[in-house]
């Protein structure tokens, strides 16, 4: 294993200290328990938004803390859910009394820990709503599994809900908006290579030199199928085809197209994927009116890409365009 780390046990702590040093005006970092929060928290009168999950997906979630997005993020160990004590402390630190929204990716550990944290926060008199994101169409048999995983739509929900909270909208509306994003967004990813969790020291799974895994989760969980590597255009057809087949997005729709690197895929390839996605969607009568291209929800150093499409209306478009100022996403501010 080759990694730029100092000590396997200190990976998350060292990263958090780096974030604090790099962005002292935007965020503060708590090291016991771990959480990152807005430097100006709690923002009076504003609904606070808290998210979190295992580390290794950077910039999500810690990089999205700041004006117009999250109020706090709780990082767990690499690919391990954070714990309720972190979420409770983060919730308390950013709560202004206007209520707190927990945005949770649908992974069993994340869901259970956030549920406990929400119970504990309510016991302390804080109004909490939780919305679980489950946009991954790769999980087909969702009745007989833990359900569809939460992936790319999480980034979009955090941005859009952050903008709504910034406008002073009440908790119930911000939570409804989060559900609306989840209902109108679908994702699917693929991997060209595996990734290595520092504590494990060896790749999470093996993938042959000429193979790719289609429908992968963000921790290298198995996907739909393994096949020989294909061209970018063919991969786009598989991923975007599966998204459109799910039936939520189709001809005549305007969408936000999010082409995400799993960590190891460079921008040159992301733009090729974007070009092919643009062509594919045009052929299917879907119009891209907004886009996001880059590494936003990653799986350590994995090479691969995920595509997320979000059906846009005027409200979602306006909130997407609203100013945001975080270490990982910044415009208009």
């Amino acid at each position: 294993m080759k990694k730029l780390i100092n000590n396997v046990d200190d990976v998350v702590r060292d990263e958090l200290e780096g974030i604090q040093l790099a962005h002292p005006h935007d965020v503060k970092v708590s090291l016991d328990p771990y959480y990152i929060y807005r430097a100006d928290a709690p923002v009076q009168g504003k609904v606070a938004i808290v998210s979190g999950g295992g580390s290794g997906h950077e910039p999500m979630h810690g990089g999205f803390v700041g004006m117009g997005m999250l109020d706090a993020a709780c990082p767990g160990e690499v690919f391990t859910s954070p714990t309720p004590d972190q979420m409770l402390e983060a919730t308390k630190a950013v709560s202004s009394g206007a209520g707190v929204l927990h945005i949770v990716k649908n992974y069993t550990g994340d869901v259970l820990n956030f549920e406990m944290a929400a119970d504990m926060a309510r016991d302390e008199g804080i109004e909490v709503e939780s919305v679980v994101i489950d946009d991954d169409v790769a999980v087909q048999d969702s009745l007989y599994t833990a359900g569809r995983r939460g992936v790319g739509a999480t980034v979009l929900a955090e941005k859009i809900c952050g903008a709504a909270a910034e406008e002073g909208r009440p908790l119930s509306e911000v939570a409804d908006l989060c559900r609306k994003v989840n209902d109108n967004a679908r994702s699917m990813g693929m991997a060209l290579t595996s990734c290595t969790v520092p504590a494990a020291g060896k790749p999470t799974f093996e993938l042959g030199e000429d193979e790719m895994e289609i429908g992968i989760g963000i921790h290298g969980e198995p996907g739909r199928e393994r096949m020989k590597v294909k061209s970018a255009a063919e991969v786009v057809e598989i991923l975007a085809g599966a998204i459109l087949d799910d039936g939520v997005i189709g001809s005549g729709d305007n969408v936000l197209a999010f082409v995400n690197s799993m960590g190891g895929t460079p921008l040159i390839e992301l733009y090729i994927v974007y070009r092919d996605l643009h062509r594919f969607l045009e052929g299917r009568g879907v119009t891209i009116t907004r886009n996001l291209i880059g590494p936003y929800i990653t799986s350590l150093e994995m090479q691969g890409v995920s595509i997320t499409l979000l059906k846009l209306d005027d409200e979602l478009t306006r909130l997407w365009d609203a100013p945001v100022k975080t270490p990982g996403m910044r415009w208009g501010a």
């Binding site: 328990p33 767990g76 160990e77 391990t80 859910s81 954070p82 714990t83 309720p84 004590d85 069993t108 550990g109 259970l112 820990n113 549920e115 406990m116």
Partner: peptide, 12 residues
């Protein structure tokens, strides 16, 4: 257990 285990088994 809630604070130190993580994953799903901690809360369970």
């Amino acid at each position: 257990l809630i604070g130190k285990v993580g994953g799903a088994s901690g809360p369970l």
